[in-house]
Simulated scan of single mutants.
Amino acid sequence: MRWRKPSLTRPQTRPWARLRIRRDDGSATIWAALTATVLCALFAVVLALGQVVTARHRAAAAADLAALAAAAHALRGESAACARAAETARAQGARLLRCAVRGEIADVRTSARAGPFAPTALARAGPVPPTPRR
């Protein structure tokens, strides 16, 4: 048997083996890019949800405090009570949307903006009616 020098120009592999290897070239890059995109989208949704929750809590706290302020100044008249409620809501980073005072009871609606979101909250404050004793 005579020794032959191997060819350096062409690898000694089967043609179907080369096709199988070439079909998978770059697939890990595509999967990594797809995974990174999905994770970024999920992170954006979580951040948006955090903004909404923060704005909702801010609006609710501002509504509660504004209603208490309006109820505390209800005897001075509706305009004075609602002016105090607007000042209190503004100090909390919210905006007073509606204020109504009937007797000593104040109904307030506020809105707090956080990014593109502006949730609203309602609150009512006034004296506690006496409970009948048995």
Rank of each mutant, 00 (worst) to 15 (best):
A106I: 04
A48W: 06
H57R: 11
A69R: 01
A44W: 03
E78T: 10
C40P: 00
A66K: 00
I30H: 04
E78D: 11
T88R: 08
V53H: 10
L42S: 10
V101D: 00
F43M: 15
V53T: 15
A67T: 07
L96K: 02
T110H: 01
A81P: 05
A70Y: 02
G115D: 07
R109V: 12
A61D: 12
A60T: 15
Q51G: 13
Q51Y: 00
I21W: 15
A48S: 10
S79C: 00
A100G: 11
A55E: 04
T54M: 10
I30F: 08
A61Y: 02
E87T: 11
G115T: 11
A80K: 10
R20L: 15
T35A: 11
A69P: 05
D25T: 13
R109T: 14
G115I: 04
L47R: 13
A17Q: 13
R76V: 07
A63I: 04
A59M: 02
V38M: 08
L97P: 00
W31S: 13
A81T: 03
L39I: 11
R76S: 13
A67C: 05
V45L: 13
A66L: 07
A61N: 09
V53K: 09
R76N: 12
L96T: 05
S111W: 00
W31I: 15
R58K: 06
L97K: 08
A67P: 01
A85S: 13
I21F: 08
A66S: 13
A100P: 01
C40Q: 03
D24I: 05
F43C: 10
R98F: 03
R102W: 00
A62M: 05
H73A: 12
V46K: 01
L75I: 12
A32D: 06
G103M: 09
A63H: 06
Q51L: 14
L75G: 09
A100V: 14
R56S: 14
C40W: 08
A89H: 04
R102T: 14
A94N: 03
A59V: 04
A71W: 00
R102N: 09
V45T: 12
A59R: 01
L47T: 11
R95Y: 08
V53D: 09
V52Q: 06
